[in-house]
Design a protein around this nucleic acid. Structure first.
Lengths: 213, 213
DNA sequence: GTCTATAATAAGATAGAC
DNA sequence: GTCTATCTTATTATAGAC
């Protein structure tokens, strides 16, 4: 792998786990098997490297949004059952996006870390990801419940954001409290279903067959 | 105020906002108007100071748990309506606990930060707060839905934990994306109601009067 | 592009006077 | 208990040879 890309993936992993401050440039270059000056040659500063890690992490994945589903299958919007299906789809897909074992964990974790500790990289992420993402979730809710306020729509979509944030950022703590395998695939699948049920029912929609307990 | 307590409150504020690594001991002592050596005299190390901040932050507040309500008003457990009332109470109280404007923000924020970036202070917090807290929420859910699995009960209570974490830790980002006053008291009140509705309905309970939209 | 060597700075911690 | 002065170490960044 090229030195530059090597540095990004290795630094990204470290940044995601330990945070910007706790990672030294030496730690990165040692692990990458290159010399310290490589960072400054390729990125200028440590901060630039961090920003490039965020940009890279974002560019690799493709997170499904309400907007995507609404344009791909607009007919689903026409019935309460279809609307409920959309919610289920998005929740399950989001959980996959964040916790698919084959995907390097740092790529989603560094974004979540950026959400809780925004740096210079946040401006880019905010415009490119969060604003459109939030907007489409909110638009969806307003279609389902046209009488709802903007605040209600936001609070509703926050149910999903909060859950993803919790499982991504508090993993270590949860495993400490509940045991080593607390967040295994089986649990995450249960959690996705529980979250989907909660969001569907809160929106006043009927539960799809497979979500009925 | 005593030097020792001064240091705890001022350091706590800085740690909560910036994180352990980003706060230097000189930053703390300068702001507190004391000399650098005061930290080492009173606490020995920077890490010890951090731990004492967490302990202090925990000891000041008293968070209402499911266990508290269940022992205080056991009769509520007997009907679905009473059970729904318990959920509503806990959610609203938790939101107050975390976002009451009169309470110093750092006291809850440093705990949330500890959840996402556990340090040596976590062992204490885990045993004293999280384990009993999680346990009582889970016990409650199993009373409401005895046929539920342990995982379902956990995923359900996570709805609340995720929400609190999101609004506490991602405040800056949310305000950047949605606007300056996105998390004002009015919104937080709406969010509490939305969360309570979602949790009550997911548990298969009837909505209390004042939560019906 | 990559290396070695080094500069410049800031950090946590300590010693000892008062 | 608090002060000044200092130590030790680790950090980011740079200069210049190859």
């Amino acid at each position: 792998m090229e030195t530059k890309e090597r540095l990004i993936t290795i630094a990204g992993e470290l940044f995601a786990d330990l945070g910007f401050d706790a990672v030294s440039t030496r730690m990165i270059t040692d692990k990458a098997g290159v010399k310290l000056s490589a960072i400054h040659y390729h990125f200028g500063t440590k901060e630039n490297l961090y920003i490039e890690c965020c940009v890279y992490a974002h560019s690799t994945g493709r997170k499904l949004t309400f907007g995507d589903v609404m344009t791909a299958e607009p007919s689903l919007l026409e019935s309460p059952e279809g609307q409920a299906t959309i919610i289920e789809k998005i929740v399950v897909e989001s959980m996959h996006y964040h916790f698919e074992p084959s995907r390097p964990e740092w790529e989603t974790k560094i974004i979540q870390r950026e959400i809780t500790h925004p740096t210079a990289a946040m401006r880019t992420l905010s415009e490119k990801i969060f604003k459109p993402d939030t907007k489409s979730a909110q638009d969806f809710y307003m279609i389902v419940r046209p009488e709802a306020t903007e605040q209600e729509a936001q609070a509703w979509s926050d149910l999903m954001y909060g859950q993803m944030l919790l499982y991504k950022m508090a993993k270590q703590t949860i495993e400490m409290v509940r045991g080593e395998n607390a967040l295994d695939q089986e649990f995450l699948s249960t959690a996705a279903q529980t979250l989907a049920r909660a969001m569907i029912l809160e929106a006043g929609l009927p539960l799809p067959e497979k979500l009925i307990k």
